[in-house]
C-alpha cells in the first residue's frame, strides 16, 4: 500500500495536496482497499462551501456507504466529474486520476492539523 510523502492525511482517510492556495482532496489507498469495488460517488457542486470535518460527499461500494469528510474549510473550486461516471478509478488510481475536489482554503492554519505520511501509516496500523 502506498502513501506518497508529498501528501497530508486525515483520520477519516482522506488525502490532501497543497497547490498554492488550493488543496486537492481524495481518499487514500487504504480507504479504497477497505471499501472494495467503488460503484458510486457523490460530490458537491462547484462553488459551495465545505467545512473541516464535515461531510462533502459520499462514496459507495456494493455493500458499504462512507461519508467523505472535508480535511479543510473553504469553497469548492473544482470537482472531478470524471470519477462520477467512472467510480472504478477510485480503486485504480486513488492519488492520481481519482482526486475528488479542489478547495480554495479559507483558513490555511487547518493544514497543520493533518498527518504526514509516516504518521498516517502508523495510525492505520493501530486502527487495524
Amino acid at each position: 500500500m502506498e502513501f506518497p510523502k508529498d501528501l497530508k492525511y486525515t483520520k477519516e482517510h482522506e488525502w490532501v495536496k497543497l497547490e498554492g492556495n488550493v488543496v486537492v482532496v481524495g481518499i487514500t489507498d487504504y480507504a479504497q482497499d477497505s471499501l472494495g469495488d467503488v460503484v458510486y460517488v457523490e460530490l458537491p457542486q462547484e462553488g459551495v462551501g465545505v467545512t473541516k470535518n464535515e461531510s462533502f460527499g459520499v462514496v459507495e461500494s456494493v455493500k458499504a456507504v462512507s461519508d467523505l469528510y472535508s480535511p479543510v474549510s473553504g469553497s469548492v473550486a473544482e470537482v472531478n466529474d470524471a470519477i462520477v461516471d467512472n467510480p472504478e478509478v477510485i480503486n485504480e488510481d486513488p492519488y492520481g486520476d481519482a482526486w475528488m475536489i479542489k478547495v480554495e482554503l479559507s483558513n490555511a492554519g487547518e493544514l497543520d492539523d493533518l498527518m504526514n505520511a509516516d504518521d498516517y501509516q502508523k495510525f492505520i496500523e493501530e486502527e487495524k
Binding site: 458510486y40 459507495e60 461500494s61 456494493v62 455493500k63 458499504a64 456507504v65
Partner: peptide, 11 residues
C-alpha cells in the same frame, strides 16, 4: 439485488 446502499440494512 442492487443499489442496496439506499436501504436500511446499510444506511
Amino acid at each position: 439485488l442492487t443499489f442496496a446502499t439506499r436501504e436500511q440494512h446499510i444506511r
